[in-house]
Design a binder for these strands. Structure first.
Lengths: 95, 95
DNA sequence: ACCGCTATCCTTAGACA
DNA sequence: ATGTCTAAGGATAGCGG
């Protein structure tokens, strides 16, 4: 191993606009998602907030962080808008 | 006005546990929510992510940040779990 | 893709308005 | 409750492995 290490440039300033390079955007998505979920988690713990975070990646994959549970939050949110939620637990087997 | 200002202590380290004082918790909730929504927003812009953040305050008030729209995200999320969403736009007037 | 590193930028605790 | 200020804490861009 070399004892020399190129000194880091540290965190660089970036402009808040779409990252055009596909690969870099994907990497940024993963890192950023972790940070977002962590912050949401701390928000819950510190303040007793109930939080749902749902994210779709550019590649259409879905990720979520929820406390206490997705269904609780989404359900409650939807109720406020006069929505009803039906789960097709049986019907889906027929599709 | 006084030209003297007590020097700030800067940001202090805190333990990630429930803030017990009710008033302080409420204030932290508001500040933290702003930060969370901002981060979610940047996530969307930078990475082309589609994101829904729904938060209930300890006082049961609901807040949300969504891009492109709550319904789009929640709808899509729910579809993945074989849910159907019904809006009671007529029925609600009877309740 | 993930993980570690670290200098630098960003956020934010605390205090006050 | 929101908003401003300061300085310290914490997240992270860029890079290497």
């Amino acid at each position: 191993m070399s004892s020399k290490r190129k000194p880091s440039m540290g965190r660089q300033k970036i402009e808040i606009k779409r990252i055009e390079k596909r690969n870099a955007r994907q990497v940024a998505f993963s890192k950023c998602r972790v940070g977002l979920f962590k912050k949401a988690s701390e928000h819950c713990t510190l303040c007793g907030a109930e939080t749902a975070v749902i994210v779709f990646s550019p590649a259409e994959k879905s990720y979520s962080f929820c406390h206490p549970s997705v269904d609780t939050i989404v359900d409650r949110y939807l109720l406020g808008g006069n929505y009803i939620l039906l789960k097709m637990s049986v019907a889906s087997t027929l599709m």
